[in-house]
Design a protein around this nucleic acid. Structure first.
Lengths: 223, 223
DNA sequence: TAGATTGTTAATCGATTAACAATC
DNA sequence: TAGATTGTTAATCGATTAACAATC
């Protein structure tokens, strides 16, 4: 894990996909996989995969391939998934509820350590194994429970304020679902999921695929 | 909108962001915006924006900038948002419910025309203005109501089957939320939203930012 | 061993940024 | 007009693909 040069965002975005694929392979009791096989499953060039992996070390065996279990562990550790960080979700609307129940978070090794809302009607209700807490105690609880990641699932208008409070409380990273361009100090990594981008770009391809069929013809540009 | 050459995925992914920004500007009653101003708001280079827009036509006025309302309409039309396509959501778990209540879908001009599930307990219940229908009638209803986009919000294990049925029913595009690599005929555009990718890459930056702070230092690689 | 497949260097491709003439 | 800002061409940068020597 001793990379010394900057890893491109494109590579970082592929790592989770490698990880998921390796877990699936492990579930299927596949012990060894070549870059060729991984590439087939992920629709990614084998060369690309080998190049990405080589940035972090020598994980394969020439003439053999990659040991699935081993590589899975290595990538998990590169992604920091073995650190079991505590996560808080802020905003218990429909989306917040979906995220609180989202298996993926715990399956990746994160712990849902707190759920916050402003609405007195919602505060105190049970969501899964947790109880919704008053956002007034945000800072205290984040510090107390060593919460590292804040998930913003509040309406757009409240998002920047929540982000500011999270940063002030010492959060390490932000996963944002509000459709706004958050302003966050540059040392705090954050990822924004804007669902409308996905739907709009799908719409674009729908609007253009029928007339300009070559737009999508060769080399499917969608993931 | 008479582009004749393939537009890169990178550009298509930026269009929705331009669109959202223009709508915000319109809400603020801003009438004219330069590529400089748009760039500041979106953290995108002005040159990039001008280049992207120029691929579709000449929307700006030299020495002046872009007329917000006009450009908003143009980009909306490029994205196909003026077509008001009918959408169906398949799977009424937590995520499906969140999507059914997601304002973004209707705000972009899509119509939620059907909601499907397999579970007899869920079928018939109200979600917003619609009633959940039996997935057994998927094909008929898609044809009857001219539904163009299918949103897959079922568990991973069921996703490929649902995709196959959507395709057989004549769906035009698929918005997939199940964490699987769907196999879909190449003429059907689809976009997959894998939330675990976003969370994992955030985790990566968290795991590496403290020790290798230069990884994120200049030119924030996150959106 | 022979065949297969990695890790890595070199070549290509595409996307971003810079520069500037055109023009409002 | 002078100043500002677009549209577009050229230069740079980065990422992907191809090729192949190393080696299991």
């Amino acid at each position: 894990m001793q990379e010394n040069l900057s890893i491109s965002k494109a590579t970082v975005d592929r790592l989770p996909r490698y990880y998921r694929c390796l877990r699936q392979l492990a579930d299927e009791d596949v012990e060894i996989a070549s870059s060729e096989e991984l590439g087939r499953r992920l629709a990614i060039n084998p060369e690309q995969i080998r190049k990405d992996l080589a940035l972090f070390g020598q994980f394969g065996k020439k003439g053999v391939g990659y040991y699935v279990a081993e590589l899975k562990e290595s990538i998990g550790s590169i992604l920091g998934l073995d650190q079991h960080w505590n996560v808080a979700i802020i905003g218990m609307g429909h989306l917040g509820a979906a995220l609180a129940n989202y298996q993926g978070i715990t399956r990746l090794g994160f712990r849902l350590a707190a759920i916050f809302d402003v609405n007195p009607v919602v505060i105190g209700t049970r969501v899964g194994e947790r109880r919704v807490e008053d956002i007034a105690y945000l800072a205290e609880i984040i510090a107390e429970r060593d919460i590292r990641i804040g998930v913003i699932a509040v309406p757009a208008a409240a998002a920047q304020d929540v982000a500011d409070r999270l940063v002030a409380a010492g959060i390490r990273g932000i996963w944002n679902f509000a459709p706004v361009n958050l302003r966050v100090p540059s040392h705090i990594p954050f990822v924004s999921e804007d669902l409308s981008v996905g739907l709009s770009s799908l719409s674009y391809y729908l609007a253009h695929v029928s007339t300009d069929s070559h737009v999508l013809s060769d080399k499917n540009p969608l993931i």
